[in-house]
Design a protein around this nucleic acid. Structure first.
Lengths: 346, 346
DNA sequence: ATGAAAGCGCTAACAC
DNA sequence: GTGTTAGCGCTTTCAT
């Protein structure tokens, strides 16, 4: 096992290097005034002792942690990973870190998480989505740090937001489907209530369909978010069974859309000739599968980059509340473009 | 903007509740001796003031942080996400958190990350893989906490490990391909040197092929890890062009294998009749795509669960060094099973 | 069941 | 360029 004596502190390094603890502290900061010889002697002593800087003590005294807390729904989602990557890239330019937490698409988990994260005294907090529990709202409102909501346009922003309307994004896709001739369009998404972005997308679907004169479009509930490929496939199977006249389906994400696509393959149903499919997120798979998937690019990385810049500006003393809309892009691919017109092929 | 006065401390809560700070501290711990009335009065006062517990101060004084540091290659990988989920599940039963860092498949980044993580005084550290820089090894050896290497069987374990031989896992797949009649088998993987697990898989492929009497099998380098679907597709295009007699290909992961599969679809090449494909990782897509992909299940979640249990045992005072092999499973699916024998169909 | 005193390891503030 | 002092907010320890 391991040696059991106490970890060396700055005092130990100071003693070994023949200086004071304060000088050791300066030697370990990049931008402090100290003679180069003293510094290198100290760094050498530190390395020999196996000294590890004690972040908690530093944070306590200096009242800064140099990190930004971030909540995202899942550890395993390329969209949110891209947002975090963009954010981290900007923050690392100022030697700041991101402290990540996962809500599992659940606002109650989010509430717990926000409290956990605030206990570690971040310099700012970024949350995914604009729907929160009452207590989570209060925690964020009372936090004495910048708060940024992302991936949404909140009804009542807490502080700043950088995102887009999930409902409007889906409306754009419905408009496209209608424009190219689809009429009996269904929606595959999560069960109502839990994933707020998914619910917003379903709501946008309904509104758009009604504005096109389709009052009661078919909605398939595929389970609790996130909707997996398998759940997308199962939902497609149900849709084909219960509503065989459907000529297009919009899925809450590319992953469920891909699952739906494979179900069509298995049944020998040709996409898009017999049924069109649309997804959401522009995941890599949407551009790779056969046929390629029509989808919506939320500009995940851009959201992260802008969030990072905003936070740096705010920490530099910028004032005012920022409300930034990052307009998603509709990406039209093969899964919604058939050669013949819909009417002809039915 | 936000109120700018100082955050309330335990003393503020104590004053409001008419008790000492020490009593507030007790009220906030679940298992401390305190009268129920005092506690509820204190909790109410804390909530009213918007008090947030200051983790750094607590950590400094108590010398415990209740978190475990974890390095994984990527934030966006279902295999590593499953391992982290398993680990977190076990740790959360003891109110411990995971502090995650991402190496981007780079041992130099890993070295930086390990130092960053150790500064926050974790109670244990888990790293993915058994290859590290010399300095990273030293940091881990000198850390006064349990160290667990995962997803590998290290040549020289630092402390404990829970994983499997990536080389042996691929050997099992080669044996299967040979057993069902494939002979001209190629490998698609990352460029040599960077992703150590991928390199181990390539090495296992070469060793296995030689043991079957194929001395110079075809290796396609697809770029720096992680290998994307697109890179898998591009590699397959090169393979088909340069080595048209290939009858099977093993890919370093299911994602690149799926890319390779789509390239075959685009060219009208039938899998597995004209070429067989194998992947690695048993990602969801491997069981969904058409045809389904033969792959290797590394039991990612199981690795995380066992790592968590081991850490709890060690923190409880267990001694001895654990070396646990979690044997991967070969999952044979349609992409490597043709109806007719290979010789007949050529 | 509760309180008082001390101190975890670092750095702000000031002195020289 | 370097040292001294004090204290960040909490919890250990001991006392009552």
């Amino acid at each position: 096992m391991k040696p059991n004596r106490k970890s060396p502190t700055m005092s130990d390094v100071a003693r070994k290097a023949g200086v004071s603890a304060m000088t050791v502290s300066r030697a370990l900061k990049a931008d402090s005034v100290i003679s180069p010889e003293t510094r290198s002697a100290i760094l050498e002593a530190a390395e020999e002792l196996g000294y590890i800087f004690h972040a908690a003590a530093s944070n306590l005294r200096s009242q800064r942690t140099d990190f930004v807390a971030v909540t995202i729904p899942s550890i395993n989602n390329a969209n949110f990973a891209d947002t975090v990557a963009g954010l981290s890239e900007i923050l690392s330019g100022r030697n700041m870190q991101t402290l990540l937490g996962y809500t599992n698409y659940d606002v109650d988990v989010e509430e717990q998480l926000i409290e956990q994260l605030l206990r570690r005294n971040p310099q700012a907090i970024v949350v995914t989505g604009g729907h929160h529990t009452a207590r989570a709202r209060r925690l964020l409102e009372n936090a004495r740090i910048p708060v940024v909501e992302t991936w949404d346009v909140p009804d009542q922003p807490i502080d700043h937001y950088i995102g887009f309307s999930n409902a409007d994004a889906v409306r754009a896709m419905v408009d496209h489907f209608v424009a190219v001739g689809y009429r009996r369009i269904a929606f595959i998404g999560g069960d109502a209530g839990r994933d707020t972005r998914g619910s917003d997308r379903r709501r946008g679907f309904l509104t758009a369909m009604r504005s096109h004169g389709h009052d009661d479009p078919c909605l398939i509930a595929a389970g609790a978010p996130p909707i997996s490929m398998r759940e997308g496939a199962d939902a497609m199977a149900r849709l084909l069974h219960d509503h065989p006249d459907t000529d297009a389906v919009i899925c809450v994400s590319d992953l469920s859309a891909f699952g739906a696509l494979t179900e069509c393959h298995r049944r020998g149903i040709v996409v898009p000739d017999q049924i069109a499919i649309g997804g959401f997120g522009n995941y890599e798979i949407a551009g790779m599968c056969v046929p390629t998937l029509t989808t919506i690019d939320a500009h995940a990385r851009e959201i992260g980059l802008r969030t990072g810049s905003l936070i740096l500006d705010l920490l530099d003393g910028a004032t005012g509340t920022m409300a930034i809309d990052v307009k998603p892009g509709l990406i039209i691919r093969r899964s919604s473009l058939r050669e013949t017109s819909p009417r002809d092929s039915q």
